[in-house]
Write a protein that binds this DNA or RNA. Structure first.
Lengths: 256, 256
DNA sequence: CGCCTTGAATAAGTCTGCTTTTTGGGCCTA
DNA sequence: TAGGCCCAAAAAGCAGACTTATTCAAGGCG
């Protein structure tokens, strides 16, 4: 039995933070996007009082925000100097928050490309591991999900297909038994929904993609790791090709 | 020319934070390790005043620490309730700080296993990409590094071999042109140095490993992506086998 | 008896003014 | 010109008052 796919399985909503409210969140959001968006260039200097004035909040709020930004590698504070903006090379690019900011910024395409390459590397290996580690139920659920995806794809129900797609990849990552792979799920969900929101997906998924999802599920169920891996590689290549056409038409070379 | 390998190339020290001082760092460190180490179990509740007393610091320090911990997914604060410890499933397991804490905790073996699997997935793909993207100098440097590794391995100079090993993998990740891959370098360095510190490495690297590093470098230089990938896969399998013998002897099943 | 309103208790969130510590840069001297 | 000294600037940290949201329970109503 496939449990609660529609209603966002396993508690966590797919990709909708509860719209964090409060001063802290507001200021963090603004500064984070400003740095990701390049409005605050590396090397430039702020100071706390300036930020207190600019956002009309108290020092405590500003200081708490700065601590968080520092832990993300966005800034560095130095006594007698102020708050230094650090270069992109020291950002924690795996922080889900950072990913979200970057996907919302001008660097969106570069971010999409990075994550898509990461998926291309990780998901096939996850499928391989899943084939040796998935229990009976997990494997059955995957087969069932692939079947539902096929139906949704044929019916042209994009919304549903997207949800199922995200869920399918989440389950494979979970079945791999590697906690770090599972955490990548959040990033992948961001990419898939982002791709959907920006209308970067074919309205009817390719026949082959539908077939490959089924292939992955079946191979995992039959503990054929190498077959699962290969099918996932093909899926990734297809996804990668679709993305490539995007960032080529977006006029961005993609090569960071 | 290979520039500054010994003296920690590219500025960043390999794995030695400048021993963060200050109250904030001290309290953060203590709470972070306590949560990672399972001393504070998920669901249990703290409150700010209690922490103020326990660490004998002011509210601002505690609050800044809590904001950082919250951004790592370690805690959640709720009005009228206090500070809730969140389960490991919501931690930002890619945060370098979190990795360090986990490597220092009882879950060290699970962490090593996760990262090693991640390497196994990512590095071969990085080698593949590097073969198409690396410029002439990068490729030459890799070949030179592999040669130095061979020499250091044969000479039994562990320290030097370790440094070169880390540098080699860093360069491959960098040459892949993917910023996210490059950031994984920090994690990998933690693993390699950790493995060394805990005497989990053969004193004389296997002949085959030395050969494989050279193979990877050469394949990249000749733009033979598939060959580079395959050689890296073999390297990873070897590293994985070495690690496996470790966590099996450590009595930990490894399956999280 | 169960449900809804209401109000008090509680703990985080925010603000403000203050002291302490660090450090970059100017200045002075040898 | 080099080295050391001193000062001011800015973050780091402290203390306490006040604000706001949330929970929980008591009491009223159907």
């Amino acid at each position: 039995m496939i449990s609660g796919v529609e209603s966002s399985a396993s508690g966590a909503p797919v990709s909708a933070g509860p719209v964090e409210t409060g001063l802290h969140a507001r200021v963090l959001e603004h500064l984070g996007t400003a740095i990701c968006g390049g409005e605050l260039t590396p090397g430039s200097v702020l100071n706390i009082d300036e930020l207190v004035d600019r956002y009309a909040v108290s020092r405590s709020v500003v200081r708490e925000v700065l601590r968080v930004l520092a832990s993300m590698g966005f800034i560095e504070t130095r006594r007698r100097v102020g708050v230094l903006i650090r270069p992109a090379s020291s950002w924690n690019v795996f922080d889900p928050q950072v990913i979200r900011w970057r996907l919302a910024s001008a660097g969106r395409m570069a971010q999409l490309r990075s994550i898509t390459e990461l998926r291309t590397a990780v998901e096939p290996h996850a499928a391989l591991l899943a084939a040796t580690r998935a229990d009976h139920d997990e494997a059955s659920d995957l087969v069932g999900l692939a079947a539902k995806m096929w139906a949704a794809g044929k019916a042209g129900d994009e919304e549903r297909f997207l949800r199922l797609d995200i869920e399918f990849h989440r389950r494979v990552l979970r079945a791999s038994g590697n906690e770090m792979f599972l955490r990548l799920q959040d990033l992948i969900a961001e990419v898939l929904t982002g791709r959907h929101k920006h209308h970067l997906m074919p309205h009817h998924p390719h026949e082959q993609a539908l077939q490959l999802h089924a292939e992955v599920a079946q191979a995992i169920q039959r503990h054929d790791g190498e077959r699962a891996r290969r099918a996932m590689v093909e899926l990734m290549e297809q996804a990668f090709d679709e993305m490539r056409s995007l960032w080529e038409q977006a006029g961005e070379p993609g090569q960071g």
